[in-house]
Nucleic acid binder design. Structure first.
Lengths: 123, 123
DNA sequence: ATAGATGCAAAGGGTTTGCACTTGA
DNA sequence: TCAAGTGCAAACCCTTTGCATCTAT
């Protein structure tokens, strides 16, 4: 995948990597079209799927919201969703002090935490 | 909403309330059809939406999976998603030892935690 | 030159809606 | 009785796929 370098792919990747918050497909399309006006939505989906497969970006799924994507090489962190302005913020570090407890026989491989509330700007 | 009592609604509500794990729409349809064979998928969606609006059930959204639903009046808990058998398990209690830390000015109102891994049955 | 990538439009899969029929109160 | 509720199918969305065209190598 992603064997050739194209303007579309460079643009889509740059849009996601330079954003200061996770972007959904429509966000990516809108921003990328500023540089590639004729960009099609199918190319956005194909490129996002390729970037996911290559481990360059990861999905960020907030319950009740469309999937968003961010660069994969960020430090372990979680997300804060402001219910007022609908923005997603990165929360540095992990909120779980200890390894998550699970019933006997259950093996925890990873976890996701989302905080909901209002951000400083909305308070 | 839900002005009249029907066999379909009683069945759908009972199916969700009696399940020992959150169910997605297809789960609900399959189980409810045992009692109401001609039940249509549209009625399942309509009833689930009505139960959500009435606060009788809540959505449980596991990243990458179809939305599931469970009764609303359960104690605070989180979910474990088995990546092998694709089932969602209830995890009693909360994994956050302390109140979640957030940057100054951020007000945390609620949180969601999802654990990923393999369950006892699949290990 | 040529296989990979793109844009468009059609196809898919899941959810909602329109409508005539059924049914609870 | 008769409006709420149902089942079916069509309509909608969002995402993926097919295909002719374009383009990076």
């Amino acid at each position: 995948m992603m064997q050739r370098r194209t303007r579309q792919r460079d643009t889509i990747r740059a849009v996601i990597e330079r954003a200061n918050r996770p972007l959904d497909v429509q966000d990516v399309l809108a921003r990328a079209r500023r540089h590639v006006p004729r960009l099609g939505i199918a190319t956005v989906y194909r490129t996002i799927n390729a970037l996911l497969a290559d481990g360059i970006i990861v999905p960020v799924e907030i319950p009740g919201r469309p999937v968003t994507y961010e660069r994969a090489n960020l430090r372990h962190h979680h997300h804060f969703y402001c219910t007022a302005c609908k923005k997603v913020y990165e929360m540095e570090g992990c909120l779980l002090g200890t390894r998550p407890a699970a019933p006997c026989g259950f093996k925890v491989e990873s976890h996701e935490i989302t905080l909901f509330g209002t951000c400083a700007a909305c308070a």
